[in-house]
Design a protein around this nucleic acid. Structure first.
Length: 228
DNA sequence: GCGACAG
DNA sequence: ATCTTGTCGC
């Protein structure tokens, strides 16, 4: 486990944070298909908090994309660097996530975030931001539709429907288990939406949420417990 | 102006 | 995210 260090120039106010999103958005790459599902490695990242004690714990868990076996993992603990503000989640999570990624003994491959990428008020969510800062391919898989709308996908696993901001498709509602509430997939950096959905399906052989986020969630909670 | 709102 | 017990079910 390592310590969180806040990146240089990290915004201190909501205004600065929004301005930074508007600036960094130009660096997002949307015209690459991204890595093939089932090949190479896939890394899940997640964060847990104890705001009372001003502690944040992040975890990064690397899986073999073919077997979904854990091949590496790392955690990071430190002070909370930003409050939760809808639309500014990245500023709360990224410092800790970067520290955990830096502590990994191997390259992460594709990174799966717990939240959104393109599906964001300014089209620059957590997955987009993390992708731009690392240069790595990223996608976002969220548990809730945030402010977006969607029609319920058909019952079978694999069914999708557009996640809409007005008439713009910013992501996809993807059914990962028959008849169970869908997850909400959006593009981060250097991955197409279709490929992001394919990866999500490959990561959900048994549960609604991707194995990557399940593993990362369990690990960062454990790290928070040990740090408290 | 008021509420809603990823985690 | 987090606060929180038992409980129904495979």
């Amino acid at each position: 486990m390592t310590t969180v260090r806040v990146p240089p120039g990290w915004p201190a106010t909501e205004q600065q944070a929004r301005a930074l999103q508007d600036e960094l958005r130009a660096r997002v790459v949307l015209d690459e298909p991204g890595p093939q599902p089932g090949a190479g490695r896939v890394t899940g990242v997640d964060v847990a908090y104890d705001d009372e004690r001003d502690v944040v714990a992040a975890a990064a868990v690397v899986l073999d994309a073919a077997t979904l076996d854990v091949v590496a993992e790392a955690t990071a603990v430190g002070p909370v660097s930003f409050p939760y503000v809808p639309g500014l989640l990245a500023f709360r999570e990224i410092p800790a996530v970067l520290a955990a990624l830096d502590a990994l003994p191997c390259p992460p491959g594709l990174i799966v975030c717990d939240g959104y990428g393109l599906a964001h008020p300014r089209r620059f969510g957590l997955a987009s931001h993390l992708g731009v800062l690392t240069g790595l391919p990223t996608i976002g898989v969220a548990k809730n539709p945030f402010t977006f709308t969607y029609d319920d996908p058909e019952t079978p696993r694999g069914s999708t429907s557009p996640l809409l901001a007005g008439t713009e498709e910013v992501g996809r509602a993807l059914r990962t288990r028959d008849g169970v509430k869908p997850v909400f997939v959006s593009v981060g950096h250097r991955v197409s939406l279709a490929n992001a959905c394919a990866h999500t399906l490959a990561l959900t052989p048994a549960y609604r949420l991707p194995e990557t986020t399940r593993r990362a969630d369990a690990l960062c909670r454990a790290a928070l417990r040990e740090a408290t």
